[in-house]
Computed example of a mutant assay.
Amino acid sequence: MNNNIRALFFDIDGTLVSFSTHRIPDSTVSALEQAKHNGVKIYISTGRPVSLIVNLSQIDSLIDGYVSTNGAYCFVGNDVVSCSSMLRHDVDVILSACEEWRVPAVVVGTDKIAVFQEDGSIDKAFRVGLGINNVVFSPLDEVLEGPILQLTPFFSPEQEALVMPRLEACTSGRWTPAFTDITSVKADKGLGLRAMAAHEGLAIGQTMAFGDGGNDIPILRTAGVGVAMGNAGEEVKAVAGYVTTSVDEDGVMNALRHFHVI
C-alpha cells in the first residue's frame, strides 16, 4: 500500500459517473471502498452546485467532504471550508451578453439555483447529457438577491473568448462544448483542494486528484498526483502526471492499483 497518499479528490461527470450509464461503475465503488478501508479520505471535486449533486448514492457513506461549484463552495459536513462569490459587475456583464446573444444560463447562489432565458438547452444538457431529472429551480430575482457563486452560460468557445476579457475577476472552466462554468478568480478546483487540505491537515503531496474536463486542469496541476481519465481531452491529459483508462474501462480502479493505494 502507498502510505503517502492520504486523500483522493474526484470529479463526478466522466470520472466517477459514466456519461453512458449515469452510474458509478461497480469497479469504482469497490476501489473506493478498499481505499476507505485503507484509511484514505475521499473528497468530491465537481463543477456541480450542491443541489445538483444527486448521483452519488452508491458512495455517499464514503465521502468526507466536497469541493463543489468548481471550488466556489467547499464544505465538510456542516463546516464551510471556503465560499467565494462573484463580483456583481461580472454577473451583470455575463447576463447582458446572454441576453444579447439569446443564450440561456444557470445562475448559482449559495443554496439555490435559477435559470436565465431557458430555451430548452438547459433541460437537454441536464436531463439527457447528465441524467439529472426534476431539477428544482428558484425564481431568478430571488437568487440574484444574494451572492452568486457561479454562472453557467451556454456560450460557444468563441463567445466565451469575447466575454472573459470584459470581466474584472473571473475564471472559466469548460468541460463540455455546450457551456462553460464561470466563477470568481478566487475559486477553482485547485484552490478548493488547497483550502480542503489546509482544513483537513493534509500536505498537498498527500493528495491525488482525478478528472476528465477542462475545469479539472487546476486540480490536476495542484494535487500531489494528478490523474486524467482515458476519456479526457488532450489538454487535460497533457497536465496530468498519469493517464488511466476511461471511466467505463475501470479507470479509477486501475489508477489506484497502479499507485498502490489499494
Rank of each mutant, 00 (worst) to 15 (best):
G233N: 10
L256W: 02
L130H: 03
D188W: 09
Y43E: 04
F155K: 02
I182D: 13
V239M: 06
I94V: 03
S172F: 10
P218F: 13
S82D: 10
L62H: 12
R88M: 04
A72H: 08
S20P: 08
T176E: 11
S51N: 09
L220Y: 05
Y73W: 10
P177V: 13
I53D: 10
K41A: 13
F19E: 06
T176D: 11
T110D: 12
V143L: 13
M208K: 01
T69N: 12
I148Y: 11
A195G: 10
G241W: 03
S184D: 15
G230A: 01
Q58C: 09
G241L: 04
E235K: 12
A209S: 15
Y66I: 11
V163W: 10
T69F: 08
N134V: 06
G214C: 12
L95Q: 05
R257C: 09
Y66H: 13
E168I: 12
S138K: 13
D79I: 07
M208R: 00
V185M: 13
T171E: 15
V17F: 04
P25L: 08
S30H: 14
V136K: 05
E234C: 10
T15R: 00
D119C: 11
Y73L: 11
P49R: 02
L8S: 05
R23C: 09
I12F: 04
G14P: 01
N134T: 05
T245R: 01
A238T: 10
L87K: 15
G214L: 09
A198F: 02
V54D: 03
L149N: 15
D13V: 00
S172Q: 14
A197H: 09
S138G: 13
T110F: 08
L87V: 14
I44V: 00
V252C: 06
D26I: 05
A228R: 02
S96E: 07
E142W: 07
T176S: 12
I59K: 11
I53S: 09
D26A: 11
K189S: 04
K124C: 11
R166G: 04
V135E: 03
I148G: 12
L56A: 12
F210T: 03
A161H: 12
